[in-house]
Write a protein that binds this DNA or RNA. Structure first.
Length: 547
RNA sequence: GGCCCCGUAGCCCAGCCUGGAUAGGGCGUCGGCCUUCUAAGCCGAAGGUCGGGGGUUCGAAUCCCCCCGGGGCCGCCA
């Protein structure tokens, strides 16, 4: 059992209520429990006296000695006993894993076809992929689902643009860029000739009605877009278990809207502009009357999302459905989840929302062609990594790719999802400080030692420098659990920075190879390498071999 | 107007969920450290009314209320 958990459980038993342990200021102890404050009231003594009384009862193999200060019970671990608890585990390729055994369906990335993914999709893609990996590592079944936005009026414009201006060769080579080019061209031309808009509207109508030629074009756009997205996904190491599109749920959505009408969850709107539309009645919840079925009988994203949600439950029987989608869709998901609950859905429904991604010095507009291509971001980061590696004579194309791509991923993950972030080139491709390369450099330093010396390991009484690392290593399982519980990879990202910092410090102040403590320190280095390696993979980063 | 999110050093952030010891990092600035496992590193210095006010509590950056500032949403778009 993890020593921190073991001690927490012991203290809880001792005092009769759960006490969260924390890391005390240095020199005061290894782990601190503010037990005295609450007991002081019960026992009518000072917090310090209460803590002292608890301290007297402490008798546990993990505890070397205790120290009472204020209302705190400060514990100094028995370092050898502590080490025993993690000695085997910390070197295991499954260190920190668990057996949670829940089923999650995670909706992430979900780009709109025929449009380039923007940085917001990138954030969703990376957070979702990481969450999936973390949840799986903890023993859950996690299904990665890409829910394509393959319905929308932009297809009318695209069909018109395609017929007039497409360059088939470019379309095959780089579908995303060519589709964007003609899309932008359409909007430029439409400014001069407004009849194009009208033409686009007609083409969209034909598409909706199933015109074979337009449907074929739409299928082509969808296929080519996916091909384009796959390039990014491959570079990011992102893999989906299921790819579906909104268009797959149109028929279901119509049926469900009528069902909701019968059940009294929805009503027919009887006045004003949306007369004749079927709307959900969420007045009581303060969530308005969102449209489920338009007055012409066609579906809308809410009803399709609802149909899709029900399908996910039928298909995968999950305990929880996660939607890694931008926070501006907060209202939509509250409406969606409320309707689902009214229908009797009892699964955990979570909008894993994340804040806006601004881009410094750029006003993004797809129709004006003002977009930041994800490939350009990755290429720039990789080029920077390659440059740095060449300076050190450690260049290899594979590791430059690993480091560059990972630096972008880490940048995305190090901030709490719900905060807005601003994409700044200087920051995203920075290799010093709180960055992916900082973590990877610690990992590579550990690897280098192990490559040079893979001798036998043995245990010693840890000195203070070693002890700092050991304590960090032991926290890994707790971090994974917290990261999963909060649906927030940033918890793990921050931990890896923390561990890397302690290791860099150790590395610069202590020798491993040639030290009399070498066999013991090799165990520590192996554990650090193991944790940093697992951690990187769970964040969807790729551990480099050299850098 | 209603609802949601954010506000912690010059800049960017962690800590808030689950209240507890002098509020932690990074960037930038200044000053040090490569004959020793890669200096993408390390060490040190300067830098903070935790947006403001009130409340709860033995104790509030953390919980509650009000206000201010910033962003977002409220469409028969997604």
């Amino acid at each position: 059992m993890n020593p921190y958990r073991e001690l927490e459980a012991y203290v809880e038993k001792l005092v009769g209520f759960p006490v969260k342990g924390s890391i005390p200021p240095e020199e005061k102890g290894d782990y601190a429990f503010p037990v005295g404050f609450r007991l002081a009231k019960e026992w009518k003594v000072s917090p310090e006296e209460a803590a002292r009384r608890v301290a007297e009862k402490v008798d546990h193999p993990l505890v070397e000695r205790v120290n009472v200060e204020g209302g705190y019970l400060n514990v100094f671990f028995n370092r050898r006993a502590f080490l025993e608890r993690i000695w085997e585990d910390a070197l295991s390729p499954h260190y920190g894993s668990a057996s949670q055994e829940k089923t999650y369906v995670i909706d992430y990335s979900s780009p709109n076809i025929a449009k380039p993914m923007h940085v917001g999709h990138l954030r969703s893609t990376i957070i979702g992929e990481s969450l999936k990996r973390i949840l799986r590592y903890l023993g859950n079944r996690a299904i990665g689902l890409n829910y394509l936005g393959d319905i929308g009026t932009q297809f009318g414009a695209l069909i018109v643009a395609y017929r007039r201006w497409v360059d088939e060769k470019r379309l095959q080579e780089d579908p995303i860029k060519e589709l964007l080019r003609i899309y932008v061209k359409f909007h430029e031309e439409a400014e001069k000739d407004p009849s194009l808009e009208e033409e686009a509207r007609r083409e969209f109508e034909k598409l909706e009605k199933g015109d074979p030629e337009n449907v074929a074009l739409w299928k082509k756009f969808r296929e080519l877009s996916l091909k384009g997205f796959e390039r990014i996904y491959r570079r990011l190491g992102v893999e989906f278990d299921v790819i579906v599109g909104e268009s797959d749920f149109v028929e279901d959505a119509k049926r469900i809207a009528r069902e909701l009408l019968e059940k009294g969850i929805a009503v027919v709107w009887e006045e004003g502009e949306k007369k004749g539309a079927i709307v959900a009645d969420l007045e009581a919840e303060g969530l308005n009357h969102p449209v489920l079925l338009k007055s012409d009988g066609t579906t809308i994203y809410l009803s399709r999302d609802l149909a899709s949600l029900l399908w996910r439950i039928r298909e995968f029987d999950p305990d929880a459905l996660l939607y890694v989608v931008a926070i501006e869709q907060n209202l939509h998901f509250r409406q969606l989840f409320t309707i689902a609950h009214k229908m009797g859905i009892d699964r955990e429904l979570v909008h894993v929302s994340f804040g806006m991604v601004h881009v410094e010095g750029m006003r993004l507009s797809t129709r004006r062609g003002q977009v930041l291509f994800l490939e350009d971001i990755l290429d720039t980061a990789v080029a920077h990594a390659a440059e740095e590696m060449k300076k050190r004579g450690s260049y290899s194309p594979e590791d430059a790719e690993n480091i560059g791509v990972s630096s972008v991923i880490f940048w995305m993950l190090k901030t709490e999802p719900k905060k807005d972030v601003t994409f700044r080139w200087k920051e995203v491709t920075s290799f010093t400080g709180e960055t992916g390369p900082y973590v990877q450099y610690a990992y590579v330093r550990a690897r280098n030692i192990l490559e040079k010396k893979s001798g036998p390991i043995s245990v010693l009484d840890p000195d203070d420098a070693e002890w700092e690392l050991i304590k960090k290593i032991a926290r890994f399982p707790l971090i994974l659990e917290e990261s999963a519980r909060r649906y927030s990879p940033h918890v793990l990202a921050r931990y890896l920075l923390d561990l890397a910092t302690v290791f860099h410090h150790f590395y610069d102040h202590n020798r491993v190879i040639g030290s009399p403590r070498e066999p013991f320190r090799l165990w520590i280095v192996r554990a650090v390498e193991n944790v940093l390696g697992i951690g990187q993979k769970l964040l969807a980063m790729r551990p480099p071999r050299r850098m």
